[in-house]
């Protein structure tokens, strides 16, 4: 189950190589640090146009742009979700995905046969089918109030979607939207640290002792990400 870099193997004398041997000192190799995986630039790689339209419309309702500033769209949340679904998260690489698939109790957690990527595909299709049946239009084409109503019903579990659990999908979408709004910008969301600036989170800092005892005062430094700040690399 190795991930990322591993060290060269030192054979134990006289035997086949039994695992990776670490002895004598702590191994270190130049360039062996597990690299930060920056999100790639450019357009959608996972979403098809109708899916992108749904996600853009939905996240704009979940975290709207308003008098406090930009929301999920301005933070590039749809792009963040696209990249997440295209990678290990979307493919449930780390998750236990072997059957049989039982009927869970309320406390047994995620028991959906679909990976997050498959779940998004299936749920968006089912949501647009319901929306078209009810309103004659896909979700993205509804006005904002209707979209809010739809999302509220989805959240409450009162809509039956074809073949997918709508309430569970809503939970996943909201979680991923919040992730994309507040994550480090290297992952493609939280563009220009919009989420962090909104709340006053100073980001990936490594030394904060100087302000521990500054009770009741606003933190004096602007946020910084793992890749620094945009203006640093201009």
């Amino acid at each position: 189950m190795p991930e990322g870099p591993t060290h060269s193997t030192v054979p134990t004398p006289g035997t086949a190589v039994p695992g990776r041997v670490v002895a004598g000192s702590e191994p270190w190799q130049p360039g062996a640090a597990a690299p930060e995986i920056a999100s790639s630039a450019g357009g959608y790689v996972f979403f098809k146009p109708a899916e992108a339209a749904f996600v853009e419309a939905a996240v704009a309702r979940l975290i709207p742009a308003d008098e406090l500033g930009g929301g999920a769209i301005e933070a590039d949340v749809p792009l963040f979700i696209d990249r997440q679904l295209n990678g290990d998260f979307g493919n449930a690489t780390r998750w236990y995905m072997q059957g049989p698939w039982g009927e869970p109790t309320k406390t047994q957690g995620y028991q959906t046969r679909l990976t997050p990527a498959q779940f998004y595909r299936a749920a968006i299709q089912a949501i647009d089918a319901v929306s078209t049946r009810m309103h004659g239009q896909a979700f993205a084409a509804l006005n904002g109030d209707r979209q809010d109503d739809f999302l509220r019903v989805l959240e409450s579990g009162a809509i039956a979607l074809d073949g997918v659990d709508g309430q569970a999908f809503f939970g996943l979408l909201l979680q991923n939207t919040i992730e994309g709004f507040f994550c480090d910008p290297v992952h493609g969301g939280n563009k220009d640290m919009i989420g962090w600036k909104l709340i006053g989170f100073p980001g990936a800092r490594y030394e904060q002792r100087f302000f521990l005892k500054a009770f009741n005062q606003p933190f004096p430094l602007p946020p910084v990400g793992i890749a620094g700040r945009r203006e640093w690399s201009r």
Binding site: E3, R20, A33, E179, F182, Y206, I226
Partner: peptide
């Protein structure tokens, strides 16, 4: 599991990544 050391797996250049380490369980 693998060998893990500070400079290779969680140096201060990227250890503060909430999504990667907590939400994606690295």
């Amino acid at each position: 599991g693998p060998w893990r050391s500070t400079p290779e797996r969680f140096p201060p250049t990227f250890a503060q990544d909430e999504l990667r380490f907590y939400y994606r369980h690295e």
